[in-house]
Amino acid sequence: MLHRRALVAEVLEGRGDMAVIAGLGASAWDITAAGDTALNFPLWGAMGGAAMIGLGLAIAQPERTVLVITGDGEMLMALGALASIAVQAPKNLAILVQDNEHYGETGMQQTATGHGVDLVAMARGAGIRHTMLVTEPGQVPDLRAAIHAGDGPFFAVAKIDPETLPLVLPPREGVILQARMREAILGPLANLA
């Protein structure tokens, strides 16, 4: 069992020019707690969209590592995306599911992963060959290395403590979130496109 904020902080340590998409709710607060930057795209909604946003970005920017950090509930809403991503096979895309076996944001109701549904097996079944199940802090350096390896698509599930932490909110103006990432990736001309 890992602590989500410590996990995300360690995964994002020395991230370089990696772009990070975070699923709505606690994952978005976690990447913000690790340091809000223009290369963070925290979602405020679009449940089930995080992985596919990552795919579109990874295809558009093949030289840049793209990491999607999301919850088990959010990933369960988009299992088909695992198939779409596996078929496209972007080497620069990594997905990290923070699995607390609950819908934390809505009051800690149980998700299917708490009943034995195995997201790593589902990703493998979809055809994502590089996967990892992280259950203890000692595995995080390997997880971090795998995210940066450029050998994707890479899919990891980290079993995390179902704790509810103080909110660390990112900007919630969507236009700013999009424009700042585009500018960070494309330069000042992004806004003249």
Binding site: M52, L57, A60, A81, S84, R182, A193
Partner: peptide, 19 residues
């Protein structure tokens, strides 16, 4: 796609990356 909403999310990601 396996379902059309994936495409909506993908268009958002493409635009973030300048495509």
């Amino acid at each position: 796609l396996t379902t059309e909403e994936e495409g909506v999310a993908m268009m958002a990601g493409a635009w973030l990356g300048g495509s």
